[in-house]
Design a protein around this nucleic acid. Structure first.
Lengths: 156, 156
DNA sequence: ATACGATAGTCAATGTGGTTGACCAAACCG
DNA sequence: CGGTTTGGTCAACCACATTGACTATCGTAT
């Protein structure tokens, strides 16, 4: 039986209420620092490629999407100058995907910006809210998210 | 100055590593119970509409997207029988969006499925991991997510 | 009363990110 | 050698989002 394109592994996320605005701020600052083309997903992709390089299929596995989707995203990042493709001398089927110097620059700037914004974000979060995280995790329902009048649904 | 379509409010999410697989399981079960068309986003939308009803513009504000995007999503859910549109007798510009009985059925089934899966998911999470959430929140970096070799980026 | 500005909804064009299915070439293995 | 995986790509399609332009309606201040 042929191996399916998609693994039983989902992209690891750690998003809290309000986290998305933090990420929006990060990309606004990133655009100011010379990376206006870098979109949210691209961070995951550059990170998943890493400095060691990888292939489109493996990238798909790491990100939990099909190899075709990974290939198209690599196409875009190659066009933007963040990734590059080279042939694998040991396997003519494979094409190695590597981060370019521009890609590394984007990663490093993101790191600095993220650290700064995260600190400010945590400061505004409130210690009691953070302490309540464990309970939230076990009891999250729609009422915790939207506080509306239909009980129990968590949207997804 | 005209009010822009998009507010400074982002869709509230509470997603942890692995949470997406939980949501996938929820929709698989939902499909088995007669709602195969219901997609992840639709849960948020039905929840945001609630039993009181709303309008496309307000829905966009609640979900943090443009009124056009909200309108198109409502179109799809109307076509699927989960929402319905009626005229507002007090304002000829507005069209009230309300949840249909089928929509409510989907919400209620989702609630039951979610509660069951959440319990099972929490059981497999490990108490120590849950207890470490507060620290994770303050120290999350790329290394916590991908554990690769480029420091500090959190993908988004 | 009217004229203006804000609001509600829609249409069109476009971009991004994802899917399936089909296909080919290279590699692996009995 | 021959059959089966595997890696990559192409094509068609779908879901969800954007911006810009446009119409109709409402509210309000002159």
């Amino acid at each position: 039986m042929a191996t399916p394109d998609r693994p039983g592994f989902a992209l690891p996320l750690l998003l809290l209420a309000g986290f998305r605005t933090l990420i929006d701020d990060l990309h606004a600052e990133l655009a100011r620092q010379g990376h206006p083309e870098l979109r949210p997903l691209h961070g995951f992709v550059l990170q998943a490629v890493g400095t060691a390089g990888t292939t489109a299929s493996d990238l798909g596995h790491r990100l939990g999407v099909s190899k075709q989707a990974a290939g198209k995203t690599v196409d875009r990042l190659v066009a933007l100058g963040y990734l590059e493709r080279t042939d694998d001398p040991r396997d003519a089927r494979r094409k190695l995907v590597r981060t370019t110097p521009r890609g590394l620059d984007g990663l490093r700037r993101s790191a600095v910006i993220f650290d700064d914004l995260r600190d400010r974000w945590c400061a505004t979060l409130g210690a009691d809210r953070v302490a309540a995280l464990e309970d939230d995790l076990r009891r999250v329902t729609a009422a915790d998210v939207f506080r509306l009048d239909v009980p129990g649904w968590f949207g997804t």
